[in-house]
Computed example of a mutant assay.
Amino acid sequence: MTASTGGPDGSAEQAADQAADQDVPLALQDAAYREAVVDLLGAIAYGELSAFERLVEDGKLAPSLEDKVEIAAMAAAEFGKVAGIHARISELGTDPFVAMAPFREAIDRFHAHTAPSDWYEGLIKAYVGDGLADDFYREIAAYLDATTRDLVVSSLEDSGHAAFVVDRVRTAIAADPRLGGRLALWGRRLMGEALTQAQRVAAERDALSALLAGGVDRPGLDLAAIGRMFARLTERHAERMAELGLAH
């Protein structure tokens, strides 16, 4: 009769499971938290993919070959971030395309409502609109486990193209001051649309709402903290507008 390697009570299997659990952060042992992280990463991944598509389309409005190359480089940088996020989603046991699917409608709706009418509106959207989304995800990243937090923050790092946008917009406003008023209104519209879509997504995805409520090893956000978070988002938006020469 052959002896069982796990023992009569399955102690070896239990020990293996316990060892595996010790390698997983406490937060990720919470199924609700894992679901929330997958949701967040799915939203970011689809956001990066759609930003890539939009920048490629905006490149058709570029007035010079140099501008086309800059926009193409920005698009490539956005697309380059997707693989790492997909890998993390897979590590968490979910198909990345399944994770992205729930956010497709909301993000596509945002882009449909904020389609730029010219080259400069496209630049403002790339700088201000994407900046707002990145700031929001950075705020949420503070409530994630260290591995996921580092991935999110690194995926939102500026790819070095902000200076290009600022230079082009400031130069255009200097040449035609009336352009500044139109672009300032456009920037305010982008912020309103972005906040509206973010609130809709959060309301529709219970896991994301629960994420901000905290967990066994993470702090949560009360109403006052949420208010301060949106105040910071508004302040950073104003700073970007000022950098573009669009502060009023």
Rank of each mutant, 00 (worst) to 15 (best):
A27W: 01
A27G: 08
Q29N: 07
Q29H: 12
Q29D: 03
Q29F: 01
D30L: 01
A31L: 13
A31P: 13
A31D: 15
A32Y: 04
A32L: 11
Y33V: 10
Y33R: 14
R34Y: 08
R34P: 04
R34G: 09
R34H: 08
E35F: 05
E35L: 11
E35C: 08
A36I: 10
V37M: 07
V38K: 07
D39R: 06
D39E: 14
L40F: 11
L40A: 12
L41M: 11
G42C: 11
G42V: 11
A43C: 15
A43S: 14
A43W: 10
A43N: 13
I44G: 04
A45Y: 04
Y46L: 13
Y46F: 15
L49E: 11
L49F: 10
L49K: 06
A51L: 05
A51K: 00
A51Y: 00
A51P: 02
A51M: 04
F52N: 03
F52C: 04
E53G: 06
R54I: 05
L55T: 10
L55P: 00
V56T: 10
V56Y: 01
V56S: 02
E57F: 07
E57V: 12
E57T: 13
E57L: 13
D58R: 08
D58V: 09
D58S: 08
D58W: 07
G59W: 08
K60T: 13
